[in-house]
């Protein structure tokens, strides 16, 4: 008996942002990332029969997206020469002593971890947002991520400002709770 079941009609609401974040971090082109997310949904639908229910829906979709990202890079690198890895010892040979020792990463530096960590943080936040009620997550995203003006959001959603601030408050409290559990 399968533990998980697919609900394609809820995919866009639940996972679109999460998958989009994942894709953008790897493709850094919003338009292509969007297309890949769309393709992922289609591919998921097509192979829904193969879904065994052992993994959660989101994990399964991420796995498909991962393949799509790889395929994308394969496509743009299809010429053999482009795929070749070229290594230079030093790009500026007249720099002060081009010793290899100077070019390895500083083991004490934590700087290169921070972008990985930030990406994970982004996904964690996105996951928490997806657990919020639809309206709250919508308001929170418009306000925090898209940085829209209060007035514009009110107009678009047909609510009054005090209504909006209550929703923001609930969303933020829930997010703090969720992040405290999952992140710290």
């Amino acid at each position: 008996m399968a533990e998980h079941q697919l609900h394609p009609e809820t995919w866009v609401d639940q996972y679109a942002d999460y998958l989009f974040n994942y894709a953008v971090a790897r493709i850094s082109d919003a338009e292509i990332a969007k297309d890949l997310v769309q393709e992922t949904f289609f591919a998921g639908l097509k192979s829904a029969a193969n879904y065994k229910g052992t993994a959660a829906e989101r994990t399964w979709l991420i796995a498909i997206l991962k393949r799509k990202v790889i395929d994308h890079y394969r496509k743009i690198n299809s010429n053999k020469g482009k795929a070749e890895v070229r290594m230079n010892y030093s790009s500026h040979t007249d720099a002060d002593g081009d010793w290899l020792e100077e070019q390895i990463a500083d083991p004490l530096s934590t700087h290169e971890n921070s972008s990985i960590e930030n990406e994970e943080l982004g996904l964690a936040i996105q996951e928490c947002i997806s657990k919020l009620p639809k309206k709250q997550s919508l308001v929170f995203k418009m306000k925090t991520i898209q940085g829209m003006e209060t007035e514009d959001i009110c107009k678009e959603l047909g609510i009054n400002p005090s209504n909006l601030w209550v929703m923001i408050h609930r969303a933020r409290t829930a997010l703090m709770d969720c992040l405290n559990k999952n992140w710290f």
Partner: peptide, 21 residues
């Protein structure tokens, strides 16, 4: 929220996506 690279799809595109799906 500022530190994390957060981005999300505009609602309009999601509606389109939903329709196609």
């Amino acid at each position: 929220c500022k530190k994390a690279p957060l981005c999300c799809l505009p609602e309009k595109e999601k509606v389109e996506m939903k329709k196609e799906l």
